[in-house]
């Protein structure tokens, strides 16, 4: 069967890795928040779409290339996240899991429908990056390569920040044990705001990357957040590195299922993985938290 030809396998693999890098950027942010405050942010994908629509507006109104708007959107969404934490999420930290789930759920519904009011439910796309790089016979899509590599770079950057810098270490300390961190003189409240801002900025960046590859509408987030769930369940809740590998894995599996079965099956992979993993391993493959 021609599907087993190395060239096709290679193309599927490349496509999967690039998509996976985008998933990883998104899921790592979600897991960062969960790790630090034990809150699953159901509005995470809507923060991503904020980035995508931001890039769309900057492109259509000012003609800014999405890669340029990235520099504006990332800090902007950082502040959105920072103040969301200050005024909303902070109120539900430490309360039962249900409360934070429902509060972020409410936030996501509001954001989606504000998006619908502002942008309608039409599919938008940004025709800024098109065409492909040709390496011999192999065609690799320009927007995907760009988005995939930038996503990878950002994720690795955040990882290094967490590992190497003082602030990053403080974030990890809060993630591991908030009380002990507080005793050691870390301003836990401020760390939480920074963390949420950072995660939001990661989501926003993922949104800009999304906007150069796909068409999107305000309801696009639902698929992504559920893919993120699958990823963090596979990679372990609260585990930054785990979410990275989980994201890459999902991207590659989707590409191969799309190649060997069909696009419709590829769209189902995340849910099937999610449910299977949960039912077999009730706390996830590398679960760290019990509610």
């Amino acid at each position: 069967m021609e599907l087993l030809e190395p060239e096709i396998l290679l193309q599927l693999l490349i496509g999967g890795l690039l998509a996976g890098a985008l998933y990883a950027l998104l899921a790592c942010g979600l897991n960062l928040v969960f790790g630090v405050m034990r809150v699953i942010n159901l509005a995470h994908a809507e923060l991503m779409l904020m980035g995508a629509f931001g890039a769309y507006v900057l492109f259509t109104v000012f003609g800014l290339h999405p890669l340029v708007s990235l520099l504006l959107i990332v800090p902007a969404i950082f502040f959105v996240g920072y103040y969301l934490q200050r005024f909303l999420i902070e109120r539900v930290v430490g309360r039962p899991m249900l409360t934070s789930l429902l509060a972020t759920y409410g936030l996501s519904i509001i954001l989606i429908n504000l998006g619908l009011l502002l942008f309608s439910a039409d599919f938008k796309s940004i025709p800024a990056l098109q065409g492909s790089f040709l390496i011999d016979e192999l065609a690799v899509s320009k927007p995907r390569v760009t988005a995939g590599l930038i996503s990878l770079l950002l994720t690795v950057g955040v990882y290094l920040f967490l590992e190497r810098t003082r602030l990053g270490k403080a974030i990890r300390a809060v993630s591991e044990h908030a009380q002990v961190a507080a005793i050691c003189g870390i301003d836990v409240r401020r760390i939480r705001m920074l963390t949420f801002g950072m995660a939001a900025a990661m989501a926003g960046a993922a949104g800009v990357m999304l906007s150069v590859i796909y068409s999107f509408w305000p309801g696009s987030g639902v698929d992504f957040i559920q893919k993120c769930f699958a990823i963090i369940i596979i990679g372990g809740m609260g585990n930054f590195v785990g979410a990275f590998y989980g994201g890459i894995l999902l991207g590659v599996v989707e590409a191969f299922v799309g190649g060997f079965a069909s696009t419709q099956w590829a769209e189902a992979v995340a849910y099937l993985l999610l449910v299977t993993v949960l039912l077999i391993r009730p706390t996830g493959l590398k679960g760290v938290a019990r509610a």
Partner: peptide, 17 residues
């Protein structure tokens, strides 16, 4: 021959095939 879902925007795997 292949069907796709109503919200599909990614046809890359399909195109490779």
């Amino acid at each position: 021959e292949e069907e796709y879902g109503k919200a599909s925007t990614d046809f890359s795997s399909m195109i490779i095939k």
